[in-house]
Design a protein around this nucleic acid. Structure first.
Lengths: 219, 219
DNA sequence: GATTATTAAAGATCTTTTTCTTTATTAAAT
DNA sequence: ATTTAATAAAGAAAAAGATCTTTAATAATC
């Protein structure tokens, strides 16, 4: 026997993340088509609009469990419902945000999240200038209130929009306080226990791609 | 001879995008190490902190042209300079932003971009409430001023933070007005001529990954 | 009713990216 | 000086993802 078989680590083997990332775009498109009265849509049509490969779209949509009909396409209504269910957009997701600076404020006030079911219900900071105020109708509490409120309101999602230096500390606290998923906007890699899921949105990474392209244009 | 050799399309074959996206994180880490007085760093050390594979880091850093010494590692100073050069962070990049809503305002005021050399020098909108005002010291003009100002100031980068419906239109205008790279925050796929580079930052896509995980937790 | 064109679905191939393996280098320890 | 341990570098293998190919289904057309 080979001692190298160290772990039968359960490989996630779920839906590919790139697929999940494309789904909101499909959903967006489908909703505007529905608004115009369309009932069916074909994968090639979606592919053309999104600049994707034909079969890519078919495979992505297959993950929702919805099947299309040859020569007709998919039922838009069915697809929308299935995508919303798949993405969890048809449930309520309440989130706490830590770091009520420019970015945090923008996230709180950003209207776009509404359709996803995600709602930031409270913000937290340690700056006394901010604590006690409201941003877009959302109250800003001192960080020390986080734990108590999170457990009482059964909050499972935390958003970190603090400076880089504070992010790991906040993440540790969140993990200890029962947060299941963290959306991290601070430009650092944060470490959390396995049962906590972290999604990074590093604006820097995107900016880097642009500036690199502008600085060293491909011939 | 095989007629299937249709195109000698110049494949970009540059640096892998995932690599470019990791580089700002390396840079960030290196700077804080330098601040603490460290002079050298090893790839395994970086890998551990970032949760990456050892050789991944070595390969990424190799693209900067800097070589490390066995048993010692890389010179932090050399690496920082090389990364800044590679990413274009040591040059000035002036950008125009269109769509001065919550998100646009946050981007304008976000302090984090300073170290990258990117500076938003003007914002544009069509809302008369916003035109003529300033946001964090940056003037907001009417969209119709974009073309003239962009050519006079030799602006090559445009940021789109408009609602989804306006994005394609703005992108068309930008492309026609000489913008070389577009940073798109609107949740739609925009089409541009080949010589214009688009980088999307779709907050939705990131949110989708989180909500999907929360809704359908992997066993 | 037969044919055709369009489409979804399933499978195969290719490409890209990551991870693993080996080799060579060199500072530190002996 | 010799050995050792840590490391970068280069190459091979594996994994993931995207694209291409083929097949089957079916609505529209003839």
């Amino acid at each position: 026997m080979d001692s190298a078989v160290v772990s039968n680590i359960k490989k996630p083997v779920g839906v590919p993340e790139p697929t999940v990332r494309r789904m909101p775009k499909y959903l967006n498109l489908l909703k505007s088509m529905q608004k115009e009265g369309d009932l069916f849509v074909s994968a090639p049509y979606i592919a053309r609009l999104q600049g994707l490969d034909n079969t890519q779209v078919v495979k992505d949509l297959a993950y929702t469990g919805i099947t299309g009909k040859p020569r007709v396409g998919y039922s838009i209504e069915e697809l929308i419902l299935a995508l919303e269910d798949f993405l969890g957009f048809n449930r309520k997701h309440e989130a706490f945000l830590v770091g009520a600076g420019f970015l945090g404020s923008a996230l709180i006030q950003y209207q776009g999240f509404k359709e996803s079911g995600m709602r930031i219900v409270a913000a937290f900071d340690i700056d006394k200038q901010k604590v006690g105020k409201e941003i877009g109708g959302v109250p800003v509490f001192h960080l020390e209130k986080f734990r108590d409120l999170a457990s009482r309101l059964h909050i499972s999602m935390g958003i970190i929009s603090t400076p880089a230096g504070a992010a790991q500390n906040i993440a540790d606290l969140m993990a200890g306080w029962g947060i299941k998923a963290i959306w991290n906007f601070a430009p650092v890699t944060i470490k959390v226990p396995d049962h906590v899921f972290v999604q990074d949105t590093h604006l820097y990474a995107n900016l880097a791609v642009i500036l690199n392209k502008l600085t060293h244009p491909a011939k």
